[in-house]
Nucleic acid binder design. Sequence first.
DNA 1: CCGATTTGACCCAA
DNA 2: TTGGGTCAAATCGG
Length: 327
Amino acid sequence: MEGVPEDKCTLIAELVRVLEMARQLETYMAVQQQQGDAAGGDQRCRALVSTMRACIDRAVSCCAEGRPDSPPSGGDGSPRSGVSDQAGGEFRGRGNAAGQCKKRKTLPKWSSQVRVSAVQDVSPLDDGLSWRKYGQKDILGAKYPRSYFRCTHRHTQSCQASKHVQRTDGDPLLFDVVYHGSHTCAQAQGAAARPVNQPAQQQTDTEQTTSPGFQAGPAVLPFSLRPASNKPPGAHDAGDGATSSRFIATGCTVTASPFVSPATSECRIVSGGYALGGGVTMAGVRNVPDVELAATTNSLMAMGQMDFMFPLDAASFLELESPASYC
DNA sequence: CCGATTTGACCCAA
DNA sequence: TTGGGTCAAATCGG
């Protein structure tokens, strides 16, 4: 976080280029639509896409190479978000008589971004697992409070999983979801709880196709967005594996939410955990192009428009983005 | 009555 | 000292 290393400069440059191209692409497409000029525009679009991919490729390479020193804020990753809920979280905490955890232990963590179709529509945030809200906090500089969830079975099954959810400032429809630790409870055993950063977990493919089905039931709406009525009825061990893990299994960027409302919702994994790489923090990985850009709305939102095209080349492109490959 | 949510207070890392 | 993360009592709802 101090000086900007060369790698990062390159990275930034590449990202800027991609951004610019995205804008151009957007413009071309808009023109196409108006003029019905499919031929010429199409070629230009292809060229742009190709170049963009190359840029992203280089950017990802930069990430990978710069990784060793990438833990930007402190060795263990984000300094603030260090998690204290580890196994046996019960004995942590104030007073901490046990005193066995002087330092907050950092669990593997990864984040995703979830876009909802409407402010009150938080169903895409349901990852199929049962979470219990244990806190909410206003975050300095953030418009919206951050909600804290932990696995419902934390005490009964010592499941360490927890997650933080927060609306992004720029886009109220976009949520930042940060997962800490992986589910070890029974509901996760089935299929769900695999950390999204475990790409080998290919069991998600089936879920993908069934996504609407498992969601059909009462959705978990663990957010305070909703009116006072609490307790989402469907929040228990659905065991329906529909979790964030599916995101990662298919790559980092998934458009058209695999979850509930594919039409409008959108989820994307922002980062891989550093469990694999042993040091890459989310902050570091957030440099992944489409991710960061998507999170940063405003003028950068042009990238958001591009999402639809990534899946076209998803195979190769996503490989680059697979957290395991560089995290 | 039981389990989930809310919310103020506390703990701890930076 | 500050602010993020967590605890736990109070409250709510089925």
